[in-house]
Amino acid sequence: MNKQIAFILAVVVQAAILAAVPARQVYTRLSGRTIRLKTAPVDPYNFLSGYHVILSYEISRPLDWSQTQHRFSRGQVVYVVLKPAEDGTWFAKSIHVQRPQDLNVDALVIKGRYSGWQGITYGIESYYIPEAVREQIEKDLQENARQAIVEVKVDSFGTAALMRIIIEDRVYEY
């Protein structure tokens, strides 16, 4: 009997680990606020790594980045205040090392990390895509790099989850 309990417990532990893997993302997807971000060309200019698209955003190197980046050390957590622009996408208003309080209703905070040459990363830099559409998406991204918009959800903790990539009227969601 004890052996059976031990086995059931082990299966429960494995199931709990599996559930914990996407828990953060699921919470953000369920509770987050949807915003749209403009992508920026990645450096080096290569969109594909194995089976995922590598993305970079305008907010990855926000404001006067070449001046401001020296304030941070590699791996440091930063909070970026975002505001909506007239075209419906969101842009970076300010960067903080402490989470800012008393925000305007139309602003929100996204949590990132200073990652050296990648600028600030938000955990939304790669998007898994199916093998069959790899080439199509890569071609579309290369030809319309400036038009690519990414829809993400941002929860109250500032965590972001990548929902879909939109290039003109084409929506890529997997």
Binding site: L18, V21, P22, R24, Q25, V26, R29, Y51, G123, I124, E125, S126, Y127, Y128, A161, L162
Partner: peptide, 9 residues
């Protein structure tokens, strides 16, 4: 797979 399905970085 879970990380892939939910785009966990």
């Amino acid at each position: 797979l879970m990380a892939q399905i939910f785009h966990v970085e």
